[in-house]
Design a protein around this nucleic acid. Structure first.
Lengths: 138, 138
DNA sequence: AGATTACTCATACTAAAGTACCAAATCTTA
DNA sequence: TAAGATTTGGTACTTTAGTATGAGTAATCT
């Protein structure tokens, strides 16, 4: 939502910049107006794509959705975030252990740390909070 | 992401529609070109907002999100759905029991039934599946 | 009215999850 | 390279979660 607003703002600014160019071209040849507007449309399109791609690179860390700055703020490590994602997918500790090729004991440690850092008492609460913080996809 | 693409497509279409109007106005008075482009920009903006709002309205249905037909298909009762929502909020069985003024035993029964009906082995998996089925808000 | 479904609750288990410590190896970074 | 953070793993223990089974009550449908 916030991203969408940003994109629109940027597009509006781009449009008004193009207006300055368009204005002078128009007084020379008003019959080519439709081409200028088409040009603006194309510019709009590519600027939108560019901004979108840029913000995605910055915000999307691998599979998940959290930005690295967001994770740093919470104190969540890369591995812990990985476990958190598997948690949200409904896996048991054993299953996550198998997925990440470590022991269940290790996952328990990770989960405990996640609960501490997210101030949750249960894995389900951790998932809810992570979703609230916009750390998870979907 | 898909929504963003949709918005852009709609905007491009809107722009080319406005082109038709703009073309005829321009041949009459080419000095007003800048106002026409400004109009297009404003139109863009409001169309974007409208589309965004519409897609939001479609996604957010009431407090819960599931349609009663969807619940009937899954065999989930009203009460079970209620428990499911509290589950997704990260509450323990005891907490849900207190929220609904019943015993923990009752909640255990409900949860067991929910797991059966959603074909899940853990409450976290039930939450994930419920989200997949679009039964939950957010 | 009788059958069905939903909701409630209990007991007795088993299985997961979570806590508290401790400790070693590896990565990062100032 | 030394210090700190990360990742991994273990033991022992407590707490939740989940299963199985039975059963009573109320509401709904035929």
């Amino acid at each position: 939502m916030k991203r969408t607003i940003l994109i629109f703002s940027a597009l509006i600014i781009a449009l008004f910049s193009l207006m300055q160019l368009g204005k002078y071209v128009l007084v020379q040849n008003s019959s080519s107006a439709e081409w200028i507007i088409a040009g603006i449309a194309v510019a709009f399109f590519f600027i939108g794509i560019l901004i979108n791609r840029k913000s995605q690179q910055k915000e999307t860390l691998k599979a998940g959705k959290a930005s690295s700055s967001q994770l740093r703020e919470l104190g969540l490590s890369k591995r812990e975030y990985e476990v958190l994602i598997h948690l949200s997918e409904g896996h048991s500790n054993k299953e996550i252990a198998d997925l990440l090729f470590v022991t269940e004991s290790t996952i328990k440690t990770h989960v405990s740390n996640i609960l501490l850092k997210l101030d949750a008492r249960r894995r389900t609460e951790a998932i809810a909070k992570a979703r609230e913080l916009d750390l998870l996809v979907r």
